[in-house]
Amino acid sequence: MQEELFTSGRNIPHIDPSLQIWHWPISTYLFLGGLAAGILFFAALFYVLGKEKQYPTAVKLATVISPIALSLGLIALLYDLTHKFYAWQLYTTFRIESPMSWGAWVLLIVTPLSFLWVFSYYSEIFPKWENKLQLLTKFKFLKTFELFLIKNRKYMAYALIPLTLVLGVYTGILLSAFNARPLWNNAILGPLFLVSGLSTGAAAIILLSKTTAEKHMFGKIDLVLIIVELALIVHMLMGMYAGSQVQLEAMQLLVNGEFTLMFFGFVVILGLIVPAILELIELIGYKVPVIVPALLVLLGGLIFRFVMVEAGQLTRFLY
């Protein structure tokens, strides 16, 4: 074990003047968690509304992404942990004031539910696999289990709606709980990350959808979410403009610093404004390849998390 002696509260390696503890796995995890939350939220919502047949991609097909995204996100999170073999201790208690505790428990519930939701549609999503492998025929208990899940799908949907909202908000609150980092220390990050996750979920559904009606519906939803996301970003920047000197200096990283091009160029313009314009043009009636705005929204959502995680770690309180 390496021992270090600190004689001052300043210039502590990896902590002051800037954090050096969260890298690409955390940004990737936040993106994948928000994406999965967005997809599962729409799947559960439209199922409860009785729109399963009208929007099959949202309710069935796109949900295949969710367990994969959550699994990869958890692998990235585990990879980033220093003491990997102690991660299980998060589940020995629940602390209501801890965002990490909330996130750990919500992920513990949502991840298996995402697998169960997909398996409840196994016969419909993977008919070719079933015809070839005959899993449900060979293993009767799997067929019984699928029927049980189909019968209780509505209960899963009612559980997923609030749980996915908590998961989406948590990805932002996880950062805003760090009071010592001015860029993160604002109440907008929770709603902002939630709306961004819902937007990337809608974009993924648009990419996979095969019907014009479904593409139009989620194009409208995504357009509204993009407008809300832009409003939240403006509100966040205005709030920091009206804040203390450290918040003004932290904001300079985004508006007049090393992250300005990434934030305004790739997130705000390419990731939000351009997709919104393209989706609006497509909704008016002009032909626009839906893959373009959908991919831009996904790319913008990913870069947004990288920017916020990296820039936030460079900010600190000095006054």
Score class of each variant (00 low, 15 high):
52 E>V: 11
43 A>G: 04
78 L>N: 11
48 V>G: 09
56 P>G: 03
38 G>W: 07
60 K>R: 06
50 G>A: 01
73 G>R: 02
78 L>K: 09
48 V>S: 11
57 T>L: 03
67 P>H: 09
44 A>W: 06
54 Q>M: 09
45 L>W: 15
73 G>P: 01
49 L>H: 12
36 A>C: 04
47 Y>S: 07
45 L>A: 15
39 I>Y: 01
62 A>P: 05
50 G>D: 00
49 L>T: 12
66 S>G: 06
47 Y>I: 06
53 K>E: 15
68 I>M: 11
72 L>H: 11
81 L>H: 00
59 V>L: 08
57 T>G: 03
35 L>I: 10
67 P>E: 02
34 G>C: 12
66 S>I: 07
63 T>F: 10
71 S>F: 15
71 S>Y: 10
42 F>E: 06
73 G>H: 10
32 L>K: 05
66 S>R: 02
80 D>S: 09
61 L>G: 08
33 G>Y: 11
36 A>E: 01
68 I>D: 07
71 S>G: 12
75 I>E: 01
37 A>K: 03
33 G>F: 14
74 L>V: 11
44 A>N: 02
68 I>V: 15
79 Y>G: 08
43 A>H: 02
73 G>S: 09
43 A>M: 00
65 I>Y: 14
38 G>L: 02
58 A>M: 12
37 A>D: 09
62 A>H: 07
57 T>Y: 01
80 D>L: 09
59 V>P: 06
41 F>S: 08
72 L>F: 15
64 V>A: 15
74 L>K: 03
64 V>S: 13
72 L>G: 12
44 A>E: 04
49 L>S: 13
42 F>K: 02
71 S>W: 12
79 Y>F: 14
61 L>C: 04
36 A>V: 04
60 K>C: 05
60 K>E: 10
60 K>P: 08
49 L>R: 15
65 I>K: 01
35 L>F: 15
51 K>S: 05
71 S>K: 03
59 V>N: 01
55 Y>S: 01
38 G>R: 03
61 L>D: 13
33 G>N: 05
60 K>W: 06
34 G>F: 14
65 I>L: 15
50 G>C: 05
45 L>S: 14
80 D>G: 04
61 L>F: 13
35 L>M: 14
70 L>G: 01
37 A>T: 08
54 Q>P: 01
34 G>V: 14
76 A>N: 00
48 V>I: 15
60 K>V: 08
51 K>H: 08
64 V>C: 14
41 F>M: 12
39 I>T: 00
35 L>W: 07
35 L>S: 07
53 K>D: 15
70 L>F: 06
59 V>C: 07
37 A>Q: 07
62 A>L: 11
69 A>K: 02
39 I>H: 00
54 Q>E: 05
32 L>D: 12
33 G>A: 14
53 K>C: 08
50 G>W: 00
79 Y>T: 13
60 K>N: 06
64 V>Y: 13
35 L>H: 05
62 A>F: 14
47 Y>M: 08
43 A>W: 10
39 I>N: 00
34 G>S: 14
